[in-house]
């Protein structure tokens, strides 16, 4: 019998602790498939971030160092510079990457560090109970924007992929979603591309994945998945924003 649904080799058999309908689990699978596909499990060092994905090391059978909140791109820089032949993987949330760690991600990108960054944008601080993130949409209520995010008070949701795509050091930058099978297939391709960018030493491979947080959005899982299409994608357009063909740095 042909197995149609098997566990990627680089995932452990530990059941995910994520809430029902949370996209972190799906995204973990995509990343694990990429690790398997490129055969890099035995040379991967992950830099975990602080957020609901902090337990990365429980699910991936790879070496992992835990970074302070937002600092994973700096930690990863240290790893990669001292071990250029290793594969270095980052997995960061939107609070982690787009708020407290803005300086670290921009400068790691700008230095053209050969790193693969999986950026999970769920428009909230999931782990700490659903506070407003820099990516929270206008009008979206959170525990620290109870009347909905208002631009006069909180500014606009930040578009990291567009910003990073401007930087010469970024080899690949894309925004994807995993809310439908068709988009999931594109997301897989993008994650693979972000891996390939590092393998080919073309600078930073960056993929932003729009994700659900049903718990902190106060929505049942199915409605949360719908919100990705109705509210998130219109503001955060999907697509490949940068794809370097060769090592054509300026």
């Amino acid at each position: 019998m042909k197995a149609v649904f098997t566990r990627p080799e680089s995932l452990t058999d530990k059941p995910f602790h994520f809430c029902p309908g949370c996209h972190h689990g799906v995204i973990h699978r995509l990343v694990a498939e990429a690790i398997d596909h490129y055969g890099v499990r035995e040379k991967t060092i992950g830099a975990a971030s602080v957020g609901c994905s902090v337990f990365l090391y429980d699910y991936f059978d790879i070496d992992v160092v835990e970074s302070p909140h937002g600092r994973a791109p700096a930690v990863a820089t240290g790893i990669k510079r001292a071990n250029p032949d290793r594969f270095v993987l980052l997995y960061q949330g939107d609070g982690d990457l787009a708020a407290i760690g803005t300086a670290e991600i921009i400068h790691a990108a700008n230095r053209g560090e050969n790193l693969t960054v999986v950026f999970v944008n769920n428009t909230v601080y999931g782990m700490t109970g659903g506070q407003m993130a820099p990516t929270t949409l206008l009008g979206q209520p959170t525990t620290t924007s109870p009347y909905g995010r208002e631009f006069g008070q909180d500014g606009y949701p930040i578009k990291m992929t567009e910003m990073l795509a401007q930087l010469e050091g970024v080899g690949y930058a894309a925004r994807v979603a995993v809310d439908t099978p068709a988009r999931l297939a594109k997301a897989r391709k993008a994650v693979f591309q972000a891996f390939e960018t590092q393998v080919e030493e073309k600078g930073m491979g960056f993929v932003e994945i729009l994700a659900t947080c049903p718990t902190n959005w106060g929505l049942p899982p199915l409605e949360a998945v719908k919100r990705v299409e109705t509210e998130m994608i219109p503001y955060f357009p999907l697509g490949v924003y940068k794809e370097r063909k060769g090592k054509d740095f300026l």
Binding site: I45, A47, V65, S67, P68, R71, A74, V75, A76, T77, G78, I79, K80, R81, A82, N83, R86, A103, E104, I106, H107, R111
Partner: peptide
Amino acid sequence: GQFVQAESEVASINMLLGAGATGKRA
């Protein structure tokens, strides 16, 4: 070796954490 002028002291110490975690003198 490698010399990296970081964007801040926050970044530098975390680079040290990363390199140190791989057992390299930094």
